[in-house]
Amino acid sequence: MMQVKVWRGGANGSFQAFEVPRHASQTVLDVVTHIQRVLDPTLAYRFACRVGMCGSCAMTVNGVARWTCRTHIDKAVKNENEITIEPLRNLPVIRDLVTDMREFFDKWAKARGSFQGSRTRHDDFALISSENGNRKEVNKGIECIGCAVCYSACDVVAARPDYLGPAALNRAWTLVKDERDSMAMERLRAVAGDAGCHSCHTHMSCTERCPKGISPTAGIAGLKREIARAVLKGAL
């Protein structure tokens, strides 16, 4: 049996302790699901795919932001008798393990995180080689599942809540490097400044924690370089 402490309530809630049976290959999400299905059906948490694709189930496990469906208990905790599960940090808590992610996704929109092509249905396909240097840069950051683990781990988000955060900036970077996109300058303008990439402290917590192995820090550094070039050319 494991002793599991789970956050209950909103921002001013408290921990509730549960005893959960230990199984081989058990994930943190398995533990939370066991609590809700067997011990306390009022526990609120969020998940969908269970296979690391949807980005719904991220939580803070023993102080570290993780995707719980792909986090095995034996990897996440050293002492199985002390597991603490909390909602993600830097986001408002709705109830128990569920956070309000609106702010997180609104910042993707603020960072101009949507693709804006210039071709119409009458034009031919844009042919971009997989060997293309810009495309290779895009590939490094494109697998983001929007789980907000990086956002939760970011010290700058904690210090200045208006900061766009690693995920939104990484998204902006993949679009800046997308040769089909036609909005590069507007996007650089949106991510420059105090709420954008210039506030990154390069602590690399996002890179350390990203479950998909993406380095938002590298993308943010790339945005700084592109903005510096644009400023020196007088384009920004």
Partner: peptide, 10 residues
């Protein structure tokens, strides 16, 4: 302005 400050600091 912020981009200029960042460049100046670098």
């Amino acid at each position: 302005m912020h981009s200029f400050l960042w460049l100046a600091q670098r």
